[in-house]
């Protein structure tokens, strides 16, 4: 169940869109922020807000990589494995992250802090290798820089 205020706000967002589908991503992001991830319940809530079937929301939710249909840690790390970053050895950065966090790609650290996901380009090709942590982008990564960023992000909570 979502709070009445959130529900009202989302209804207003849907009402202001020309077609309900257009507001789907916003609604899913808000619900994700509320629950931490887009739960099955949230999918059904989004569907009823948008006038779509749960399946039709699921179609959109599973298409976007920043909508999480499974539980994630407090901060999600999206590390780019696309071609520009690959040219500047993102593989090494990914290996370092896996080792440092003790998880495989898709895994969440034991303390529930970080979830590590590969992603396909964040538009930071000039600053590769790149990643984002909890929505904040970081570029020109080195293993040392990665360590610093993780430490800093851990402290920020």
């Amino acid at each position: 169940m979502i709070p009445e205020t959130l529900k009202k706000a989302l209804e207003a967002r849907v009402a202001s869109a020309i077609t309900a589908r257009e507001a789907a991503v916003d609604v899913m992001k808000e619900l994700q922020a509320h629950y931490g991830w887009l739960t099955d319940e949230a999918v059904e809530e989004a569907a009823s807000l948008l006038g779509l079937s749960p399946l039709q929301v699921e179609e959109l939710a599973t298409f976007y990589e920043m909508i999480y249909r499974r539980p994630v840690g407090k901060k999600v790390i999206h590390v780019c494995d696309s071609i520009s970053c690959w040219c500047v050895d993102c593989d090494g950065i990914i290996e370092h992250l896996k080792e440092k966090l003790g998880v495989a790609l898709g895994g969440t650290t034991a303390d529930g802090m970080f979830t590590l996901l590969p992603c396909c380009c964040m538009g930071m090709c000039g600053d590769g290798p790149a990643m984002s942590v909890g929505g904040i982008p970081y570029g020109k990564l080195t293993p040392e820089l990665v360590d610093e960023i993780l430490e800093m992000e851990r402290q920020k909570i």
């Binding site: 779509l52 079937s53 399946l55 039709q56 699921e58 179609e59 599973t62 298409f63 990589e65």
Partner: peptide, 11 residues
């Protein structure tokens, strides 16, 4: 409305 396509790319 109850059947459709989910996921992206190879999934």
């Amino acid at each position: 409305t109850d059947f459709g396509v989910t996921g992206s790319a190879g999934r």
